[in-house]
Design a protein around this nucleic acid. Structure first.
Length: 611
RNA sequence: GGGCGCGUGGCCCAGCUGGAUAAGGCGGCGGCCUCCUAAGCCGCAGAUCGCGGGUUCAAAUCCUGCCGCGUCCGCCA
């Protein structure tokens, strides 16, 4: 059997390859049997739920009406027609039929050989299952007005994981942070730093029982958020605050250089503190783009003029401009999308349009990570982009993380700061390692504790699908048990431990695996070894699915199952038996190790070598 | 009031481009360390897939009505 063209040089997804082989043979048989749309039928070729039903199965029910025969009959006939051809080729060991399905069983020996050679000989191409493209993924982009809290972190962790998954697939990705450097939030912060002092801040916060002891007094984001909170409280009673802030914000919207500088001086230390937190969980950015840029370069003004020529354009009594979106499927109290105020200035969303126009010069694909509160806004911007003949970005929405007391809010102080969560996670993990490993130095233990804590926090946020809300509970956020990052890390560490042990004993792991491959006997694999091989073989398919649907939680589920299969394999397939090396088991262990590591890295889990 | 999203065992959650007996985890009960890390492995109990209609050979999955939760409906960001 020849390799299919898409495999060449791109790394292989073994199960998908097998599926294509089987499809090709089935196509001919189905046509012979009178199926006029074999492609449609073959779309339903999929892996069954239970292993005794084979590794791939084709439902034949839809054919019953066309052929005037019972599904069972058709499945049996089809199986008979393709059995000898398929089983004489590589990949398929058995064909059967049951209950209206045609079932195909993978040749595990063949698959084991494929999996080992593809993974171990070309580890650099793991995950590279298609030709790469360039993407600009914008995520986080939080207002720099205070420390990162757990609610905001979902955006960052989702976005960064999507970035990482694309990188594993070989894409050229740029992670971008859009800095809101001219809005009301930053305006309030700047005003507060100018007009309040420590004593006043303490007084205001104290009156509302919000004057808490700082958990991270050394960080500017933790220090300055108090000024932000105090100014927000003061604003309710003292109109001077609103007036002062509005004056600043208006100046910033006119690109007043002094005010923009003042704003930057106010938020940059806060942003630095936030980035320090993100860096701790492995999140970094390739570029930062400031919102004010699009005012300064005049592109917002041009956009507003162009939108004025749209069929949807309208003008309010005071001269404000909008697009009427009712005809474009927008419903609600107001279907108007305002893009220019009565005083001629732009709005946040208008600048966002200019930002998108600019982003399209930077990459072939754009992905935005947005909270579900931005759904309407995003739709409005999308329609405006349509009007301007600019492509829409791909958008990933996520639901909020709530505390038992309700929605998180920096302004109201109802938050769990990421810094505190990470400290607690690392402390708990360190305590566990200390108890279990008396052979490690304090430094090693704290490194492991940090890796475990940080990974667990990331995983517990990424494991649930983006559109579902999360109710934050400390015990769940800090879970280290089965459905968790440490579980996966532990499997990886076990594989590393085997490799390390052999190397320490003077074995040449690479040579041993070469030997196993040359010998090429993969017969009589144990059940658990066979299951591990099958799981490994779907890595590419699973990664692909997670990327295409923008759902990192799918990769979590897969990686968890890979770790589970590895643990079962580990249980009854030893590499070292009484001083002798079983090089076949070693090869499988190494293949799993490589994929566990790649998978961990693409989820932002730190793949440590021992724990 | 309207738009959008979500609703799966006591708890968390996967599956939702329709396919065979709804996958895991926590908690509960019972087993497994003379053997490469027990953060592991094995077994048992536990589910009217929010409720009612509809489409289909086939519905957790698609359509529709209702209920509950979230979110938005600013010339804010």
């Amino acid at each position: 059997m020849e390799w299919l063209p898409y495999c060449v040089g791109l790394g292989v997804d073994e199960m998908r390859q097998l599926s294509e082989i089987i499809s090709a043979v089935l196509w001919d048989a189905l046509t012979e049997m009178g199926d006029e749309n074999p492609d449609g039928t073959l779309k339903n070729l999929a892996s069954p739920r239970h292993s005794h039903q084979g590794d791939l199965a084709l439902p034949c029910f839809a054919l019953a009406k066309i052929m005037g025969r019972a599904p069972n009959d058709i499945a049996a006939d089809l199986a008979e027609r393709v059995a000898s051809q398929l089983t004489s080729m590589d990949g398929c060991s058995e064909v059967g039929s049951e209950g209206g399905f045609c079932n195909f069983y993978v040749d595990v020996e063949w698959l084991a050989e494929q999996v080992v050679s593809q993974t171990i000989d070309k580890p650099e191409s793991v995950g590279h299952f298609r030709s790469p493209s360039s993407l600009l993924i914008e995520h986080t982009s939080a207002n720099p007005n205070g420390p990162f809290h757990v609610g905001r972190s979902r955006n960052a962790i989702l976005g960064d994981t999507i970035v990482r998954m694309h990188r594993l697939a070989g894409d050229n990705v740029r992670a971008e942070y859009y800095v809101d450097d001219m809005g009301k939030q930053v305006g309030i912060l700047a005003w507060a730093l100018d007009n309040l002092d420590e004593a006043k801040v303490s007084e205001i916060l104290g009156a509302e029982d919000m004057d808490e002891v700082l958990t991270h007094p050394e960080k500017q984001d933790h220090q300055r958020v108090r000024y932000y909170q105090a100014a927000n409280l003061l604003k309710a009673d003292d109109p001077a605050v609103e007036i002062g802030v509005t004056k600043l914000v208006q100046a910033s919207e006119e690109a007043d250089a002094d005010v923009l500088d003042k704003f930057e001086a106010a938020y940059q230390p806060v942003l630095d503190g936030m980035l320090e937190t993100l860096d701790r969980i492995g999140i970094t950015f390739d570029s930062f783009t400031k919102e004010s840029r699009f005012i300064v370069d005049g592109s917002v003004e041009v956009i507003m003029e162009k939108l004025g020529a749209s069929d949807l354009h309208g003008t309010a009594e005071n001269g404000a401009h909008y697009l009427e979106l009712e005809s474009r499927g927008v419903a609600g109290k107001s279907t108007k999308f305002f893009f220019r105020r009565g005083d001629g200035s732009s709005l946040y969303a208008t600048r966002d349009i200019a930002y998108h126009q600019w982003k399209w010069q930077e990459a072939e694909r754009l992905v935005n990570i947005l909270g579900e509160d931005h759904r309407l806004q995003s739709k409005q911007v999308g329609i405006a982009l349509d009007e301007l003949g600019i492509k829409n970005p791909e958008v990933v929405f996520y639901a909020f993380t709530k505390l038992p007391e309700g929605k998180m809010s920096t302004r109201r102080g109802n938050v769990v700061f990421m810094d505190d969560l990470l400290d607690e996670a690392a402390a708990r993990a360190t305590a566990i390692v200390t108890e279990m490993r008396d052979d490690l130095s304090a430094e090693q233990i704290s490194e492991i504790g940090e890796a475990v804590g940080v990974s667990a926090v990331r995983y517990n946020i990424i494991r649930v699908s983006p559109e579902k809300g999360i109710n934050f509970r400390w015990e769940e956020a800090l879970s280290f048990e089965s459905d968790s990052a440490p579980f996966i890390m532990y499997s990886h560490a076990r594989a590393c431990s085997i490799n390390r042990k052999l190397t320490t004993q003077g074995h040449d792991v690479g040579a041993l695996i070469d030997g196993a491959q040359q010998y090429g006997d993969w017969s009589n694999l144990s059940d658990s070894a066979g299951e591990l091989v099958k799981r490994i073989a779907t890595f590419g398919e699973e990664l692909n699915g997670a990327i295409d649907s923008h759902r990192p939680n799918l990769l979590c589920t897969y990686l968890l199952s890979l770790a589970t299969e590895y643990n079962r394999f580990y249980r009854d397939n030893h590499v070292l038996v009484e001083g002798e090396v079983n090089s076949r088991n070693l090869a499988l262990s190494e293949a799993a190790r490589i994929l566990l590591k790649a998978g961990c890295e693409s989820l932002g889990i730190v793949a440590i070598e021992q724990m």
